[in-house]
Write a protein that binds this DNA or RNA. Structure first.
Lengths: 133, 133
DNA sequence: CTTGACCCTCCCCTTACTGGAACCCCCATG
DNA sequence: CATGGGGGTTCCAGTAAGGGGAGGGTCAAG
């Protein structure tokens, strides 16, 4: 079960470049063949799968590093995992809120805009400081 | 009405660093005093206010550049402004959707996790490929 | 004359990769 | 034997939108 980077890429959905990057920053440590090719063992595959999913859920690389350490630590406390996750959830909520606020403002302005050949535009008025709302 | 960068910073809410950056990339072109200090006219102030608001609404710098050009073009068609805005709105919606999906998955996993001193953790199981859901 | 608040430029750092150049390795085919 | 294709390798540079900090000039007040 020794895989080349291309095989791992296919199985994890991560691009080869990304996998090399993850090695660069110390997230995985594949072995090397005599021809310098990276050799991935099953554990590397597990880690990369883990990383792929964690990244897809929006965790930062830094969070991933910590989660991975917990993943590999049989004596971990699930509270530590949950804390990272809760913090992340709060950030997600904050982002959603920000985006929804932007969306509300913009869709309001957009609705007012005729969107034709004339120059009059409530969107631009809203963006400049024309506070005649 | 000639302002230094600090004055402009206070009035627009943009940091001095940001204003210098905007000059760097050609969004504003303040004059220069004999001592090399930037001299901002009213038009610069307007532009920077515009940029500040547009950025706060999540437009990219590139969008801002185009919006600013339309803002200054008296012969613009409001349709052009509206198009940029609509595209941006769609991106915001896509991001909100992504974030909500992440949130759903993560909050589900998080609820299942005891968050105590024990190592068992459904979050980590979800992140590894343990598909025993 | 000195002090503190401004202002200037220049350069590196950030996140999480992505693209490209230049090169090596291995196998199959004509 | 040459060559072509499809792996792999390294290193360098760049992205968005600034942030941090060094090192130095300027201005107004006491």
């Amino acid at each position: 079960m020794n895989l080349n980077i291309g095989d791992v890429s296919k199985r994890t959905g991560l691009r080869a470049k990304t996998i090399r990057y993850y090695e660069d920053i110390g997230l995985v440590k594949p072995l090397r063949d005599t021809n310098d090719y990276r050799v991935f063992r099953e554990i590397d595959l597990h880690k990369l799968t883990f990383l792929s999913r964690a990244r897809a859920l929006g965790f930062t690389i830094d969070d991933c590093r910590n989660l991975l350490a917990l993943y590999e630590d049989e004596t971990r406390a699930s509270a530590d995992v949950k804390e990272i996750t809760s913090k992340h959830l709060k950030e997600i909520e904050a982002k959603i809120n920000d985006l929804q606020a932007m969306h509300a403002t913009l869709s309001h302005l957009s609705k007012e805009c005729a969107g034709d050949h004339r120059p009059d535009c409530p969107i631009l008025e809203g963006l400049s400081g024309d506070d005649r709302r």
